[in-house]
Each structure stands twice: as structure tokens, then as C-alpha cells.
């Protein structure tokens, strides 16, 4: 064991982690899936969707921002945390205007796949039903804010590419994703090939003219739950 390794315990199983990693990164490397939405590998963690909440030594914390240290005892796959995460996902569904049957991201959507994985059958919270703005000005990319969950992945990806096309504006319930162009996306530097244009977990920021290309039944999450790729890395325990 090198001196840069620490041992942490997730759901009773000891795993080896590298110092400087977050709990979520260490879990990924060990083949343990912690549900997440605003985290995207390679980007600075946002820490705001709270879907990756775990209990660290008994206290809730977002695993995508919490650094590992020797001896951490972490709860992840428990009924309590699954219920909490499902409620967070329900709140996202209740706040936006997510119409899965009419959405081209359906089947490839991380929000929807997360709801499947967490066993959400219905949104039991009242729907907010607030109108949100659509931006179809760009030739290759559109923003349908009805489907935005404010994960900020587009903003962080764009910043990482040195463009800063996206950002947040407004606060609280009025927070929304904004673009660096007075009259919409067409005035920004965004290109279809940018990572930012492909960072969206839902159907909010999508490339034009590729929707519905993959038939139902063959889409990413039709038969395999989200997180399976990580869990298949290696058997735990």
C-alpha cells in the first residue's frame, strides 16, 4: 500500500481510495455506484443537486465534494438514502415541466433513468407548472428550459473549454440557465462539437436533428439501469 492510499468503508465494505479523491470518485473506481446528476466526470464537482448525498460517519454530505480520509464510514445504498434521493428527484420533476412521452431525450435522459433506478412511480409533490423559456436561435443546438434541472453541467463544461457560454442568473425559484448572448444562443461561441453542448443530463440542452434516431428499446437506459457501467467495473466484496 503506498502512503497516498487511504481506506474507507462504504456500506460495510472496505475500499481503497487515493488521497485527494472525493468519496464519489473513490466509489466509482471501486465499482460502487453512488447516484448523481450534477456531477460529470472531468468537470469540477458542483455539489448542488444533492442526489449523491451519502452519510459520512452518520452525517449527510454530498459525496461528489467530500474528500476521502482514512477510516471514513459511509452509508450509500440504504433505504433511507434511496428515499431521500427519490424525493430530490421528485422535486426536480415537480419544479420543471418534464413531459417524458413528448421528449426526445426519453430513454437517454439521466433524470428519467435516475427516477427509474430510485423506483419513482409518480411525482407525489404538486407540480409547479411555471412557464419557461425556449431558445432555438442556434443553428445546431437548442435550450428547452422546461427540462432544465439547474445542474450547471453546461456552464462548468463551457468554462472548462474557456468559453463561458452558460451561466446562472436569478436566485432561488427564479434561478435559470442564461447564455452569453443578448438575443440567445446564436450570438454565443457555442459549437455543436463543444463538450458543453453534450453535457446536459436531460432534454434541455440538445443537438438539433438527432432526436428520435435511436429506436425505443435500444436507448441507453431502456434495459440497463443508470450506473450499471460503474457497477460492472468489478464485483465488490
Amino acid at each position: 500500500m503506498s502512503k497516498n492510499t487511504v481506506n474507507i468503508i462504504i456500506d460495510g465494505v472496505e475500499i481503497e481510495a487515493q488521497e485527494g479523491q472525493t468519496i464519489l470518485q473513490a466509489a466509482d473506481d471501486a465499482g460502487v455506484y453512488i447516484p448523481r446528476l450534477c456531477y460529470l466526470k472531468g468537470l469540477i464537482p458542483g455539489g448542488h443537486c444533492r442526489v449523491c448525498t451519502v452519510k459520512v460517519n452518520g452525517r449527510p454530505a454530498s459525496s461528489c465534494t467530500f474528500p476521502v480520509s482514512e477510516g471514513l464510514v459511509i452509508e450509500n445504498d440504504t433505504e433511507e438514502l434511496t428515499t431521500l434521493r427519490r424525493t430530490v428527484v421528485e422535486m426536480l420533476f415537480a419544479e420543471g415541466n418534464h413531459v417524458c412521452p413528448a421528449c426526445e431525450a426519453s430513454g437517454n435522459c439521466e433524470l428519467q433513468a435516475m427516477a427509474y433506478r430510485l423506483g419513482m412511480l409518480a411525482v407525489t409533490l404538486p407540480f409547479l407548472r411555471k412557464p419557461r423559456e425556449l431558445d432555438a436561435t442556434h443553428p445546431d443546438v437548442f435550450i428547452d428550459r422546461d427540462r432544465c434541472i439547474l445542474c450547471g453541467r453546461c456552464a462548468r463544461a463551457s468554462e472548462a473549454e474557456g468559453k463561458r457560454v452558460f451561466g446562472f442568473e436569478g436566485r432561488g425559484i427564479n434561478k435559470r440557465i442564461a447564455v452569453d448572448g443578448e438575443h440567445g444562443l446564436k450570438e454565443t461561441d457555442l459549437k455543436a462539437a463543444d463538450r458543453a453542448a453534450r453535457a446536459c443530463p436531460t432534454g434541455c440542452l440538445r443537438l438539433k436533428r438527432i432526436g428520435w434516431k435511436v429506436p425505443v428499446g435500444q436507448r441507453q437506459y431502456d434495459t440497463t439501469p443508470i450506473g450499471s457501467d460503474i457497477e460492472q467495473k468489478q464485483p465488490v466484496g
Binding site: 415541466n97 413531459v99 412521452p101 411525482v123 407540480f127 407548472r129
Partner: peptide
Amino acid sequence: ISVGQCAITGGVPACRNTV
């Protein structure tokens, strides 16, 4: 039993809810 997305969420007809 609510069967299907319209019974469960309002579904496509509920697209009018923001107008």
C-alpha cells in the same frame, strides 16, 4: 390505480398548463 403518464402527471394534455 392511475394508469399511464396522463393519469399520473397530466401527460401531453398538461402541456397547456403553462399557458
